[in-house]
């Protein structure tokens, strides 16, 4: 079985590097075991096991169709929204399996925030976009609390200074880069522990991309981040660990520095050096 021969990195392997380069063990946040996803008869993800460390940025890379987005959407059970999908295996967040029979997908999605490839603000005001998650989850008791939490989220997403005078304006009037940071603020407002980002900068210009990357770097203090990207340089810049997917399988998961300089497998090396897809 091919998957058996793959490196499933141990906790120590994928421990974080601090700024100075020393290895810090931050513990496992998400523990994925034997995860497979099917769309009808097609197997989009094949027996993936992987430990995602807390308070780190883990990048998922690989050619399109390799299963990296499917993997991301399996972590908060968004896959289920597409008819005829099936998932086997387990995804434990803080030791709790999100696919356990008693687990509530709605609760899972509140704890695991998600930012999408194409910025998708609701056609509502800036304020209402951020307040939406708080309202549907009943997280703000009073109007004042709601306003405080909206402001806090916008500040965390580094957007407050730009929009504090435009809270009542339509979110669609913001620039594309601002819209994407608004979507991040919207995801943060419900206070998730894990933030999933599906190519969050692929539709942005270089300057807006840089702002998102800076933001990702700051956010990992408080959140565990999994980011899907097709941009190798971006993975190298923002992530601590990198997972390389190929044809639905996890080929290699290791420290980003190691993946890009001395990967264990030939396939990984060929891909990161641009010899593959």
């Amino acid at each position: 079985m091919a998957s058996r021969t793959m490196a499933i990195p141990s906790l120590a392997d994928v421990a974080a590097r601090g700024r100075e380069g020393e290895v810090v063990d931050t513990g496992t946040k998400v523990d994925v075991r034997g995860l497979s996803c099917f769309y009808g008869e097609t197997r989009a993800l094949d027996n993936v096991s992987m430990r995602i460390p807390a308070h780190q940025v883990t990048a998922c890379v690989g050619p399109s169709g390799c299963g990296k987005s499917t993997f991301l959407r399996a972590l908060n059970r968004m896959n289920e929204l597409i008819p005829s999908t099936r998932v086997t295996g387990s995804v434990a967040i803080d030791g709790q399996d999100v696919y356990a029979p008693e687990a509530d997908p709605v609760e899972v999605r509140r704890r695991v925030g998600m930012v999408f490839q194409k910025s998708n603000p609701f056609p509502k005001s800036v304020f209402e976009n951020v307040a939406y998650g708080l309202r549907v989850n009943g997280l703000a008791g009073s109007r004042a609390e709601l306003e405080d939490r909206v402001e806090a989220s916008l500040r965390t997403a580094a957007l407050w200074d730009e929009v504090q005078d435009r809270l009542r304006d339509s979110a669609l009037a913001l620039s594309v880069g601002q819209q994407q940071r608004l979507c991040i603020a919207r995801a943060l407002a419900v206070e998730p522990d894990v933030l999933l980002m599906d190519e969050p900068a692929s539709a942005l210009d270089p300057i807006a991309t840089q702002r998102i990357e800076e933001l990702v770097y700051q956010l990992k203090q408080r959140y565990t981040i999994v980011i899907v990207t097709h941009n190798m340089q971006q993975a190298a810049r923002v992530s601590d660990g990198t997972a390389f997917f190929w044809l639905g399988k996890l080929v290699e998961h290791d420290l980003t520095s190691r993946i890009f300089t001395a990967p264990a497998r030939k396939l990984t090396e060929d891909y990161v050096t641009g010899r593959l897809g």
Binding site: D104, V106, E107, V136, N137, G138, L139
Partner: peptide, 9 residues
């Protein structure tokens, strides 16, 4: 009623 239940209802 908790918001969870309200949502489901």
């Amino acid at each position: 009623m908790s918001p969870r239940w309200r949502g489901r209802l």
